[in-house]
């Protein structure tokens, strides 16, 4: 499965969530998206956004030990 990437680094919440929402709207059900961000808020907000909109979170956590960057991977649900 081809996984798309979204660079949301240096944006503060809720902008990474808004960018994720815009991107997901252009994807098909079952497609995957990897979001990279620097605001740790994405670890709470993107999974919450996925839960209310019916998408599946595959992974959410820091990219590096210093916790300067964070990654959230999701699979698009039936209603993008």
């Amino acid at each position: 499965m081809n996984r798309q990437r979204l660079d949301a680094r240096h944006l503060l919440c809720p902008m990474p969530v808004i960018r994720t929402q815009e991107r997901v709207a252009r994807l098909a059900p079952g497609e995957e998206l990897e979001v990279l961000a620097t605001d740790p808020g994405v670890l709470a907000d993107i999974p919450a956004w996925c839960r209310v909109n019916g998408h599946l979170v595959l992974e959410a956590g820091p990219v590096d030990a210093a916790e300067r960057e964070f990654r959230v991977c999701l699979r698009v649900g039936p209603n993008p």
């Binding site: 809720p14 969530v17 808020g41 709470a44 907000d45 919450a48 956004w49 839960r51 209310v52």
Partner: peptide
């Protein structure tokens, strides 16, 4: 501090 987006929390 635990942080949440209140609008998303309400939706949930």
């Amino acid at each position: 501090r635990p942080k949440r987006n209140n609008a998303l929390w309400v939706a949930e």
